[in-house]
């Protein structure tokens, strides 16, 4: 049995608010294997994003506890700042939900792309510029060379997300985390983005964690899935299995909530 690429045991995340403590993630454990696509599914507030942010070390350390978090051959729980910065973007890439706010409005996208090469791969000048152009071509942004000088607000929503993806995969990371990548986009664009993601995944051999509340997206792209509710994993397994045979009542109600046009059922609100 090959070791998992990412291994999380008993992750708990607590937030201190005005009215006391909230437990956003409660004892979550799962593995991610090399090359596979794992979907984390659940409604808003179930703790899906917080889990991955904790793994990336993007939350305040104080609230994060776990038995262990292993990723890309290192102990991510105890890693120091410098070590984590070397991992983020390089070994693990992350894309976020809203590309308009997630891209810096006052920097050109060229700048935002080339800095990945500069920081992690030590490239500069012409080399990093070329790398940026190649990336944009890869994700399907036309006239890549001229568009490097443009600012985020000069792109459409779908194009922006492609740029986000390009940034995240610039260093060919082992893991790509996609946090609701298509939620803010039109349905037609959604399909394109998902296609790009799987294309990149096979090309670079990345493992992907897809966080979504959209089961349609999950069905199309994921191998395995976790269902989260109130900070806990309530069901996990192969996507086909879970869809065909949901074990937990919550999962069942989740699946039932998706409107189906191939069945003759009555739609009750």
């Amino acid at each position: 049995m090959t070791a998992a690429l990412l291994s999380i045991r008993n992750l708990t995340v607590r937030f201190h608010g005005e009215r006391g403590e909230t437990v956003a993630v409660d004892g979550v454990s799962f593995d991610l294997n090399a090359g596979e696509t794992l979907a984390i599914v659940g409604e808003s507030g179930s703790g899906k994003s917080v889990t991955m942010l904790a793994v990336m070390g993007l939350l305040a350390k104080a609230g994060v506890t776990a038995d262990n978090i292993f990723g890309c051959g290192r102990n991510l729980l105890n890693a120091g700042d410098v070590e984590m910065r070397a991992i983020r973007g390089r070994q693990i890439g992350m894309i976020f939900q809203d590309p308009m706010t997630s891209l810096n409005p006052v920097l050109t996208i060229g700048r935002q792309l080339t800095e990945m090469f500069e920081i992690h791969l030590g490239l500069s000048g012409a080399a990093s510029r070329k790398g940026a152009i190649d990336l944009l071509n890869l994700v399907g942004v036309p006239s890549a060379g001229t568009r490097l000088k443009d600012y985020p607000h000069q792109f459409s929503g779908g194009m922006r997300q492609r740029v986000m993806i390009a940034m995240a995969v610039a260093c060919k990371p082992q893991i790509l985390i996609a946090d609701e990548p298509t939620t803010a986009l039109d349905v037609t664009i959604q399909a394109q983005i998902l296609e790009i993601l799987s294309g990149l995944q096979s090309e670079f051999g990345m493992a992907m964690i897809m966080i979504s509340h959209d089961l349609g997206v999950v069905a199309g792209i994921a191998d395995r899935m976790l269902v989260m509710h109130s900070g806990r994993i309530v069901e996990q397994g192969l996507v086909d299995d879970v869809f065909a045979n949901p074990q937990m009542p919550y999962t069942r109600s989740l699946l039932a909530a998706v409107p189906r046009f191939d069945l003759e059922t009555e739609m009750t609100p």
């Binding site: 910065r85 891209l103 810096n104 920097l107 940034m167």
Partner: peptide, 21 residues
């Protein structure tokens, strides 16, 4: 802001993040 979070997710050092972004 979200773009600062993206910057951190990209592995930028705090100094570079502050100065450039």
């Amino acid at each position: 802001e979200d773009y600062m979070r993206t910057g951190r997710a990209k592995g930028l050092s705090p100094g570079l993040l502050l100065r450039r972004h």
